[in-house]
């Protein structure tokens, strides 16, 4: 497979995953916002959402203050925000267009359809209802696309590169989300009422609420939620699950054999796996957890760089 094609597939996986995750965070926030009474707290929530989905510095460079409609617009359809869903979906479509001879026709069509509808979305007034439908459309498009991938792609190289992008993106995003909530929790350790609310939100941001409840009491103890989202081996949105699947994908690329050129890559991914296994989440305080999560994000950056180097992927076009 051409390196350029591999790179486009990797980014196709990443961009779709990013759009879906960000849209879920925003839709959750749109609901929570209704219950918030304290304006200061609400502004802080919005800042956190921006920090998860984009970059708060970039936002403040353009806008002086938090304004709900501005933020929604910035996160969803702003061409200025590299990570707006619209941009992620446009990039994903371009990635798909560059690999149209490789991917299933339906995958291209799903992304193309979103793009064609986009024009209509932009023209409609940005009412709350409109925004919600738009967010829903992002999620549905991403899920449909994944359905096409799972049901019709051969489990060979193109599939595997797509998946590496997806798992890496997801793992990183979960750790960013958790980082934000650990910080919140650290600043505000006393109020158990708030704590409950924070960790419930974390689960909703990661689409883990229902799955969590099946295994844990609904008390939202921070260490239990964190343990679930970091280490739960069966939940497809835990950090551990994501990293294990990156490893599995690389095994598939290499047929389970380690060659001289891939030795460093294997070494790194195994080290990350061990670091996750060996971490006792439930006995760590927020400070330590944040260190762990920061360290994990650094590891992800290194891993994606090594992955690109190992397979001669060209300079990523849309890297954050």
């Amino acid at each position: 497979m051409l390196s350029r094609v591999a790179d486009s597939l990797y980014w196709l996986g990443r961009n779709m995953e990013r759009a879906e995750n960000n849209s879920r965070v925003l839709s959750t926030q749109l609901i929570h916002m209704l219950e918030a009474t304290d304006e200061q707290a609400l502004n802080r929530d919005w800042e956190e959402v921006i920090e998860i989905c984009a970059s708060i510095e970039d936002y403040y460079e353009r806008y002086g203050r938090i304004d709900r409609d501005t933020v929604i617009q910035y996160l969803s359809i702003s061409p200025l925000n590299m990570n707006s869903f619209m941009n992620c979906m446009i990039y994903a479509r371009e990635n798909a267009k560059a690999t149209r001879d490789i991917i299933p026709e339906e995958l291209w069509e799903v992304l193309n359809e979103f793009y064609l509808d986009q024009k209509e979305w932009e023209e409609q007034p940005s009412t709350r209802q409109h925004t919600e439908r738009y967010l829903k459309n992002v999620t549905t498009t991403s899920m449909t696309a994944q359905g096409v991938i799972e049901s019709s792609m051969s489990r060979d190289l193109p599939y595997t590169f797509l998946k590496v992008g997806k798992w890496l993106e997801r793992g990183e995003k979960i750790s960013r989300i958790l980082n934000v909530f650990c910080e919140k929790n650290r600043k505000d350790p006393q109020s158990s009422n708030n704590t409950y609310y924070y960790w419930l939100t974390a689960l909703q941001y990661t689409n883990g609420y229902d799955a969590y409840l099946k295994k844990n009491p609904p008390t939202m103890q921070p260490e239990k939620v964190l343990n679930f989202l970091i280490k739960e081996p069966t939940f497809p949105r835990s950090i551990r699950y994501c990293i294990n699947h990156v490893k599995e994908a690389i095994d598939r690329i290499e047929d389970g054999k380690i060659s001289h050129y891939s030795a460093d890559l294997f070494d790194m991914i195994e080290r990350i796996q061990v670091e996750i296994e060996d971490t006792e989440i439930e006995s760590m305080d927020m400070e330590e957890l944040m260190q762990f999560l920061d360290h994990f994000q650094d590891r992800c950056l290194t891993l994606s760089r090594m992955f690109s180097e190992t397979y001669y992927l060209v300079e990523p076009a849309h890297v954050k």
């Binding site: 497979m1 051409l2 390196s3 350029r4 591999a6 001879d101 190289l157 690329i253 397979y311 001669y312």
Partner: peptide, 23 residues
């Protein structure tokens, strides 16, 4: 057949190669 762009190809000793993930 593979769809390539100019940047995917390289000529070495008058032989044309394409750049793949395996070299």
């Amino acid at each position: 057949i593979e769809l390539v762009e100019g940047r995917d190809l390289v000529v070495k000793d008058d032989v044309v190669y394409m750049k793949t993930i395996r070299g």
